[in-house]
Computed example of a mutant assay.
Amino acid sequence: MRRRSFLAAPSLLLAAPAVAATAQGEAAAALLSALRAGGVVVVLRHGITDRSQADTGRLEDRAGQRNLSEAGRAQSRRLGQSFAARGIRLGEVRTSPVFRARDTAELAFGARAVVEARLTADDYTPDPALLAANIAWLRDRVRRPSAPDAVDVLVGHIVPLGMVLGRGLSQAEYPEGALAIFAPQAGLLGMLAAETLA
Results as ranks from 00 to 15, higher is better:
Ala23Thr: 14
Gln24Cys: 14
Gly25Gln: 15
Ala28Gly: 11
Ala28Pro: 08
Ala30Ser: 12
Leu32Lys: 14
Leu32Thr: 11
Leu32Gly: 07
Ala34Phe: 08
Leu35Gln: 06
Arg36Thr: 11
Ala37Gly: 04
Val41Asn: 09
Val41Ser: 09
Val41Cys: 13
Val43Asp: 12
Val43Pro: 07
Leu44Ile: 00
Arg45His: 02
His46Gly: 07
His46Val: 05
Gly47Asp: 13
Gly47Pro: 08
Ile48Asn: 04
Thr49Asp: 06
Asp50Phe: 01
Asp50Asn: 03
Asp50Ala: 01
Arg51Phe: 08
Gln53Tyr: 05
Gln53Trp: 06
Gln53Lys: 15
Ala54Leu: 10
Ala54Ser: 13
Asp55Arg: 10
Asp55Val: 01
Asp55Lys: 10
Thr56Tyr: 02
Thr56Asp: 10
Gly57Glu: 04
Arg58Thr: 09
Arg58Tyr: 00
Leu59Asp: 01
Leu59Thr: 03
Leu59Arg: 02
Leu59Phe: 00
Asp61Trp: 11
Ala63Phe: 02
Ala63Ile: 02
Leu68Trp: 00
Glu70Pro: 09
Ala71Gln: 12
Arg73Ile: 03
Ala74Ser: 11
Gln75Asn: 00
Ser76Asp: 04
Ser76Gln: 08
Arg77Trp: 09
Arg78Gln: 07
Leu79Ala: 00
Gly80Arg: 02
Gln81Val: 01
Gln81Asp: 06
Ser82Pro: 05
Ala84Phe: 07
Ala85Arg: 06
Arg89Val: 14
Leu90Pro: 02
Leu90Ala: 04
Leu90Val: 03
Val93Trp: 05
Val93Ile: 08
Thr95Lys: 02
Thr95Pro: 10
Ser96Trp: 01
Ser96Ala: 07
Pro97Thr: 09
Pro97Asn: 07
Pro97Ala: 13
Pro97Glu: 14
Val98Lys: 03
Val98Tyr: 02
Val98Pro: 02
Arg100Pro: 11
Arg100His: 07
Ala101Val: 07
Arg102Cys: 11
Thr104Ser: 09
Thr104Ala: 09
Ala105Asn: 05
Glu106Ala: 07
Leu107Asn: 05
Leu107Val: 12
Gly110Ser: 13
Gly110Ala: 15
Gly110Thr: 13
Ala111Gly: 13
Ala111Thr: 14
Arg112Phe: 04
Ala113Val: 11
Val114Asp: 03
Val115Asn: 01
Val115Ile: 10
Glu116Tyr: 00
Glu116Cys: 07
Ala117Ile: 06
Ala117Lys: 12
Ala117Pro: 10
Arg118Pro: 03
Leu119Ile: 08
Leu119Gly: 11
Thr120Ser: 10
Ala121Ile: 08
Asp122Ala: 15
Asp122Asn: 12
Tyr124Asp: 12
Pro126Trp: 14
Pro128Val: 15
Ala132Asp: 15
Ala132Arg: 14
Ala133Arg: 13
Ala133Tyr: 11
Ala133Trp: 10
Ala133Leu: 13
Asn134Gln: 15
Asn134Cys: 15
Ile135Asn: 03
Trp137Met: 00
Leu138Lys: 13
Leu138Thr: 04
Asp140Pro: 12
Asp140Tyr: 04
Asp140Leu: 11
Arg143His: 08
Arg143Trp: 04
Arg143Cys: 06
Arg144Trp: 01
Pro145Leu: 08
Ser146Ala: 02
Ser146Asn: 03
Ser146Trp: 05
Ala147Asp: 04
Pro148Gly: 00
Asp149Pro: 01
